[in-house]
Nucleic acid binder design. Structure first.
Lengths: 262, 262
DNA sequence: CGAATAGTGTCTGTAAGACACTATTCC
DNA sequence: GGAATAGTGTCTTACAGACACTATTCG
């Protein structure tokens, strides 16, 4: 569902060409459009989301998704990747992003009407981001530490979240949890080469469950095109344990059979 | 992922209240936002989509999804349902709609920059729609008769389609095909009471495959909460055949086990 | 060596596809 | 009766969960 440019429009007649030239765009109500990105990664086996601390009104001091106003010649996706680069040190080239949903409540921004197109992104473990132009600070928050319930208050370890971004994070979480079942998306959290234990820990972190290692292994290997074995061994374990074989991503775009949750 | 209103924003201080009051919304680039609806139904066992014929530039004479500019106080969903009522005689109360995706290509409308939030909707078989305010005509096109390939030309039985609406219809089709697998969405195409053959024909029309009646029956009845048997019999068949039992929709929101495609 | 993790083999229950068969209704 | 559709029962295969066991590597 990635957007591809539309073919150039050719007016059907000279009359239409003149009509288009004289078109007055100001007769329709115009609104501001922003993009926001729910960027996930896995750090120390925990699912984390990137938030930036707001240093201006409104919601000053609260944490928000990286994002900002879309520019006249940008598609949503280009805008989202640009804002990601500006507000954090995230290597945008490493990020897989896809459109999530659009939030249109007229009251969602106290300044004015703002329609926001949200994206979900996944990146492998990366260095801690640093604040950029528009944000006082950027930080990978552990998702389980956030209170994503709309009615719940912020607490010591759980920051206040700006705008309707709690809902957007919830929606992004559900999207990723679902797509791990029938796509190879989990490997976006990993480097080029990984062990099956690495892959299993991604599923465990995102789904918040423990998976049976032996059965997980069998399912992954029985799904054609999911992973490709390499001849190499992974790094040795910390305190004993057999070294694991390394795998790389297969070519499958959808998984058959799927990695279904219980 | 339905949007719910956000809680009312309370400024943290008098300074912020004044800042918000003096906020100049015009400093950001504004764009026009429209909503479009891919409304599906099933007529005579064929999946159909509602299109309206354009009577103004641009794409005059071509067929487009019902939709229009979002109003200042409307959410996207309210706007989509309103436009559906205005451009056709569709009983909006009967329509299940959900957000599909947002289309942001700067060139997608030759008049000006228009960001469109698209919705997919499903309705039971209904009388032929009539044209409304903004459209010369509204018609249920059989989806299989449309050429949804971007590169393909319109032909005798297959109308020219305006803007990037081919892509939007394709995306809507994929969404519905996918959601039939793990949600009870198929019943949105049916009336309150239906036979299992009715339900099977929905799956066959949407997926474009023939399903084994006996196995389909077993899967549906083995999925808890999918359908509820009633004591009544359906109407007799046209030319012989046992009358079928009637069922109504169960309470399940997701199907376990799912109705997976091959 | 023991602890820890990788990897294999097997048993069992569930569900899907294929197909044979019975039941009911219209002509 | 014959055609058509509804509904039942059964066989086979595939896969998921549980669990027992072997293999390798660290300290």
């Amino acid at each position: 569902m990635t957007e591809t440019p539309v073919t150039h429009y050719v007016p059907s007649s000279e009359a239409e060409r003149q009509w288009l030239e004289a078109y007055d765009a100001s007769k329709y109500p115009l609104v501001a459009v922003t993009t926001d990105v729910v960027l996930f990664t896995i750090r120390s086996g925990r699912l984390c989301v990137l938030l930036v601390q707001r240093k201006d009104y409104p919601y000053k001091g609260a944490w928000a998704l990286p994002g900002g106003f879309i520019r006249p010649e940008e598609t949503g996706e280009v805008s989202a990747l640009r804002e990601l680069g500006e507000e954090s040190s995230i290597l945008v080239s490493a990020a897989h992003i896809e459109q999530l949903a659009t939030y249109t409540d007229p009251q969602r921004d106290p300044r004015m009407r703002v329609v926001s197109v949200a994206y979900v992104g996944l990146v492998p473990n990366m260095p801690l981001p640093v604040g950029g132009d528009d944000a006082a600070d950027a930080y990978w928050w552990v998702v389980d530490d956030l209170t994503l319930d709309d009615d719940q208050e912020a607490s010591e370890d759980s920051p206040a979240i700006a705008f309707d971004h709690k809902r957007i994070i919830r929606d992004g979480l559900e999207r990723v949890r679902g797509k791990l079942e029938y796509t190879p998306l989990a490997m976006r959290f990993l480097d080029d080469r990984f062990t099956l234990a690495d892959l299993r820990r991604v599923y465990e972190a995102v789904w918040g469950v423990e998976l049976h290692a032996a059965n997980f292994r069998r399912k992954v290997l029985n799904t054609p095109g999911f992973v490709i074995p390499t001849d190499d061994q992974g790094p040795s374990q910390f305190d004993g344990g057999r070294a694991a074989a390394l795998y790389s991503a297969g070519q499958a775009a959808i998984l058959h059979p799927a990695m279904l949750r219980a």
